[in-house]
Design a protein around this nucleic acid. Sequence first.
RNA 1: ACCGCAAACCAUCCUGUCGUUCCGAAUAUAUUUCGGGAAGGAAAGUCCGGACAACGUAGGGCACCGUGCCAUCUAACGGAUGGUGCCGGGCUUCGGCUCGGUAAGGAAAGUGUAGCAGAAAAUAACCGCCCCAUUUCGAUGGGGUAAGGGUGAAAAUGUGAGGUAAGAGCUCACGAUUAUUCCUAGUAAUAGGAGUAGUGUAUAAACCCCACGGGUUGAAAUGUCAUGUACACCGGCCUUCCCAAUUUUGGGAAAAAGGGUGGCUCGCCCGAUGCCGGGGGGUAGGCAGUUAAAGCAUCGGUGUGAACUGGAUGCGUAGAUAAAUGACAGGACGAUCCAUAUAUGGAUUGACAGAAUCCGGCUUAUCGGUUUGCGGUAUUU
RNA 2: GGCUGCAUAGUUCAAUUGGAUAGAAUAUCAGAUUUCGGCUCUGAGGGUUGGAGGUUCGAGUCCUCCUGCGGUCA
Length: 134
Amino acid sequence: MKEEKTKFTFKKEEKLKKRKVIDLLFKKGKSFPQYPLRWVYLKVPPEEEQKMPVQMGFSVSKKRFKKAVNRNRIKRLLREAWRLNKHKLYKQMAESGSYSVMIIYTSKEEMKFEDLEKKMKKSIKRFIKQEIDQ
RNA sequence: ACCGCAAACCAUCCUGUCGUUCCGAAUAUAUUUCGGGAAGGAAAGUCCGGACAACGUAGGGCACCGUGCCAUCUAACGGAUGGUGCCGGGCUUCGGCUCGGUAAGGAAAGUGUAGCAGAAAAUAACCGCCCCAUUUCGAUGGGGUAAGGGUGAAAAUGUGAGGUAAGAGCUCACGAUUAUUCCUAGUAAUAGGAGUAGUGUAUAAACCCCACGGGUUGAAAUGUCAUGUACACCGGCCUUCCCAAUUUUGGGAAAAAGGGUGGCUCGCCCGAUGCCGGGGGGUAGGCAGUUAAAGCAUCGGUGUGAACUGGAUGCGUAGAUAAAUGACAGGACGAUCCAUAUAUGGAUUGACAGAAUCCGGCUUAUCGGUUUGCGGUAUUU
RNA sequence: GGCUGCAUAGUUCAAUUGGAUAGAAUAUCAGAUUUCGGCUCUGAGGGUUGGAGGUUCGAGUCCUCCUGCGGUCA
């Protein structure tokens, strides 16, 4: 393969969609907090092949944000932050298998995109340190 | 020009970069490229009404739920429009005019309730007034009486005259008010007039009566494909007659247990490798439904109006499913604050809010702007 | 996307068929008792009955519309 251009896309294959997988993730997955985010992740067994290195989902509690507008906005900001920064994780992962991940927003207040992106970068670094580098 | 009220409409805009989703075309099946579409007036609350779908279709009665002045509009409505009555405000030449509200059938079919106060709260005698009897002359007992008294949200039609022992619609006159009959106006609610019978408190968002309407369940409906399983296990019920055949099979008739028909009942229907119940197991994925106007706007015509008409012109249809419609940068516009000092500069900021089968309403949230109408104030001509 | 229930002192609950100034326990505060504190006794404060309208002479209670918090579904 030639030098791959870093693509900032986020298509259906990269989204966490299967109800079964999500149930399994919350039942058996590991998690760590990185305010205002919480990662829940699970290594996908090799027999269930998955095209993309990570299938990602985002979640915002209905108790913390009553209005659907606010929930949607936070999820959109999270998706955007992930889209622009996921390549850093992909580089490190190489061939070390694939993961299902759900990121939960735990703060009670909305953030600006700028701040949220910083937090996302930090949490990706932590994920690499904790899971990939061992 | 400013202020207030009401109604209708709009709901920040533009450019660039990076993305999401659907449709179409090409490439040729990992994809990539091009073109086009992509939230709302409330998408919300789920308060009503429909469309559509499934089940049922043999209906009747009861129960239950909803609505409640009249007419019209509408696919339909508990919605809207116009009117009538009632209530409240304003003006008034006192006749009315105008604005707003109105769950507005029946209390003269029956039942219940009306605390405290008051003699008495719906078959009203405490004080007072009058009559009769008794009397120790203080009064006591019996009866009549709703004119006077205070209480209370509410006290039994108001005023005057006659009448009476005292009084009383007991009688009369002028009113008030209710029911009903007739006449006039109106499609009608109702209004006006005349006659008759009355004076019957309030409450039906207390029970209730009357009239009208309502089958139930809602896209997690429903159909279909795939996966999976098992005529598995436990308990209950499994009738009678006739014919052929011959030891359980076929046909026919009746009908039991049981089941269905929304809750009850009558009635009806089903009913033998079957029916009902229990407990357990499996799958909770794909596709269809699923993206179309009971279309919209302007002009014309009809109507007081809600609306209708389809004559003309133009516009136009989001389809996701852990759920798309976004992020960043720059500019314009608006708002707030600060500074200079009336035009610029700086900072902050952009209402309410996000489709989930689709429509018509209602209700609630909403920074600001535009238009129209009405009223008020000031100035000019 | 539907269906359904609840809301009363800081907290847990009452309030008859609509009737007067919405009660009780606990918590809080003050006083008494004690060397001091606890226990105990006495007293006080604390409520727009979730909000706004309506019916009624009179609403915690009845009706309508909102707000908030639960429960449930194939």
